[in-house]
């Protein structure tokens, strides 16, 4: 009786609750470490793979840029990925070596950082998608989160066969989804910068 449900049509299907920007203070709620809050018993954060997690350990980093080329320092990034076998493990558990979900923020040095493993190829339609990490972008000024995918530049063969990546015709546009391996002494690091607008605008998906 007190509810604010809205019907979509006369079939009784309800309207989805409307989205609003996560705003500039998102860190208080979803990135406590960045906000300077004491961490609670169990937090969702940027370390998806601990020592002992199966697969190739990697770092995924990047910055978010607006249409003026300025860093979007208040962005919050969420990733969701398969394990090294290409299976999604739904149960989030910080006590396990690997969890497929994580969050990071660009507030500290303008970059988000994830410590994870390279995902395996996920089956789709009797084909295999190329290894990829699903990325969601939240920030002040973004009314509903943006959804994209990070692929890997050293997986060219898999990339060329990926049924989703190949939906994007223009090579320039396709390129916006490819994380680039950087030379480091330590574990492999991939850079996936996100352009909200402009010549290099990242491909964002609707699904």
């Amino acid at each position: 009786m007190y509810s604010q449900y809205k019907l979509q049509d006369d079939t009784g299907v309800l309207r989805e609750t409307a989205s609003q920007t996560a705003g500039p203070y998102v860190h208080i709620g979803l990135a406590l470490e960045v906000a300077g809050f004491a961490s609670r018993d169990d937090e969702i954060w940027e370390n998806l793979a601990k020592e002992g997690a199966e697969g190739q350990h990697i770092e995924l980093i990047g910055a978010v840029y607006d249409g003026n080329g300025d860093l979007v320092r208040d962005a919050l990034i969420e990733i969701w990925q398969a394990d090294s076998q290409g299976e999604y493990i739904a149960e989030f558990d910080n006590k396990k070596p690997f969890s497929g979900f994580g969050r990071s923020a660009c507030a500290t040095d303008g970059h988000y950082h994830f410590y994870t493993i390279k995902p395996g190829r996920v089956d789709f339609d009797h084909q295999k998608m190329a290894p990829h990490i699903n990325v969601a972008v939240f920030a002040r000024g973004i009314n509903i989160h943006l959804q994209t995918r990070a692929y890997f530049d050293d997986e060219q063969e898999a990339n060329s066969e990926c049924p989703i990546l190949s939906r994007i015709i223009s090579p320039e546009r396709q390129n916006t989804l490819i994380a680039v391996k950087e030379d480091t002494e330590e574990k492999p690091r991939y850079r996936f910068d996100i352009y909200l607008q402009g010549n290099n605008e990242t491909v964002f998906f609707d699904f």
Binding site: A139, I142, N143, R167, I168, Q197, E201, F205
Partner: peptide, 10 residues
């Protein structure tokens, strides 16, 4: 400045 100009890829 934070809104994509291209269509979302469905």
């Amino acid at each position: 400045t934070r809104s994509p100009k291209q269509a979302l890829v469905s």
